[in-house]
Design a protein around this nucleic acid. Structure first.
Lengths: 101, 101
DNA sequence: CAACTGCATGAACTCATGTTCATATAGTAT
DNA sequence: ATACTATATGAACATGAGTTCATGCAGTTG
């Protein structure tokens, strides 16, 4: 952007834009947002999420990896299962999103 | 989802999920979010947005149409130019998004 | 009127992303 | 150790989304 009244904060804002879009691109997918929605109610392992969403195990793992990469969820292995939960950032973002409507 | 403690509000939430993802899919694109960012500073016509973003006229028109379809922006023709501005919803959503960081 | 400007639109193309498939790994149970 | 369960991962495929190109339309100017 060239410099003018509406882009004075451009360096800060363009950084924000990049960060926000990176996050939203992941969250704007219906299955992934549903996963976040499920995790709002508490920790769940992958097989529990499978039952809720009726998606393949592989696909859910991929989605969870995407969500983990942007620090929206964290995982912890207990016995045979891997439990996923929202991070602080995950809680903040999902709370904000569900305020939209 | 099957019915259980974490999906009791499922019908309401799954409706929300669909609505939210529909909106985020449009907003999560960098050029479109930049356009919203520009419009936060006030009304702009297409050629002004072009100068800011260095994108083709056609591409910007397509993006603006997408944003208009989800009621984030509105347009008004004055003379030879079409001026775009944020709707109330557009203001609310962008304000919320920029609160994320 | 004709020529020009600003913007919109649809089709074609390209590239990114969701999905599946096959397979690998780690832990558990027998 | 063997067999089994839960999860992860990478490659291949399929679909969707961003981009370009050509063109059309409305309003303006001379």
């Amino acid at each position: 952007m060239s410099s003018c009244s509406c882009c004075e904060q451009s360096s800060k804002e363009s950084q924000q834009v990049a960060t926000i879009t990176a996050l939203l691109k992941i969250v704007s997918e219906e299955s992934r947002l549903k996963i976040l929605c499920i995790l709002r109610a508490g920790d769940h392992c992958v097989c529990e999420i499978m039952e809720h969403l009726e998606l393949s195990q592989s696909l859910i793992s991929h989605h969870l990896k995407d969500l983990k990469d942007i620090d929206m969820v964290s995982d912890e292995k207990r016995g045979l299962y891997v439990y996923y939960s929202l991070t602080a950032k995950g809680k903040k973002v999902t709370d904000l999103l569900f305020e939209l409507y």
